[in-house]
Design a protein around this nucleic acid. Structure first.
Lengths: 163, 163
DNA sequence: TATTGTTATACTCTATAACTATA
DNA sequence: TATAGTTATAGAGTATAACAATA
């Protein structure tokens, strides 16, 4: 027992900072492993998810949406295009830019990726009751909004620092 | 509106996987920045926190406790020793090992680090009510335990893969 | 002059392997 | 033969800077 009073007893697992850091790495690793069967990474899912709502965005618009650096986006689109999940077309309004379009295989891939994601999350949150999962999600969202975060840019997704 | 039914609309901010990944990176970056005034990183806080409960552990025991690879631990202890926060002494039971002991400056540093951590977390969770913070922490802990995580090993702390 | 996409280079961090001295 | 600590090397990922084409 500590009777001196100046002996710090910092317990890492009682601080959301350390728990969040570790759970973030954990989920990224596990979700990445689950996605390996599809031959893609979370960053590819992120790009496809944006395009599924806004097909034909330029690479720079994708960068703005996901806060991924444009240098990194080149490689992501390269990989998606090589496997014919997306296609670079002429941008109708800007000859400097490409319009990135999702191809049929990309749409099918996103459906599969969502299935993988849902399956992983069901397992990951299996210790939570349905109402607790909703509460947990709501708290995460509130913290993200309060912290000024733009979801989609995370480690392994090519975070975008200040230039 | 989507009337085809085969058009996936995966929203990243509705999935704990992406939210956790991003919040984990965010907290690590912010906490690291807050610690910069003390000239240390989260990994140093992690090691000191373990030693504060179990002074004189060997480097390997620290590795086991925090799931940091022994190659990385060498550098962490080097940095802590150079600034006289800890000291390598002869291990009483094993001549191969060092016993890592916290020095007075290290104890003072940990108190300061805990202050920085509490300050950061108060700001980070300012959008949560006290009972919500407790609930959030409890949920994080349950997910960590359920996922078989050992808190302390996180990105920027030198995670320990299978050898 | 600024922006879009691209490429090259350097830097950080980590993974792997080896080595020594002990057990 | 295995373990504790250390060191070296190489690999992955990223930051920085530059470039050509276009605005």
């Amino acid at each position: 027992m500590d009777t001196t009073g100046d002996h710090a007893h910092l317990r890492l697992d009682e601080h959301p900072t350390f728990l969040l850091a570790q759970l973030g790495v954990h989920t990224t690793e596990r979700f990445s492993a689950a996605l390996a069967s599809l031959g893609i990474q979370p960053r590819h899912v992120a790009v496809l998810s944006v395009l599924s709502d806004s097909d034909g965005l330029s690479q720079q618009q994708l960068c703005d949406s996901l806060h991924i650096h444009r240098n990194v986006m080149v490689g992501i689109v390269d990989e998606l295009e090589r496997r014919e999940f997306v296609e670079r077309r002429k941008h109708p309004a800007n000859r400097r830019a490409y319009a990135v379009h999702v191809l049929p295989a990309g749409k099918r891939l996103l459906v599969e990726a969502e299935r993988v994601l849902d399956g992983y999350e069901a397992e990951f949150t299996s210790s939570l009751q349905p109402d607790e999962r909703r509460e947990f999600l709501a708290l995460l969202q509130r913290l993200a909004v309060n912290g000024g975060l733009h979801v989609g840019a995370h480690y392994g997704c090519g975070a975008d620092p200040v230039e």
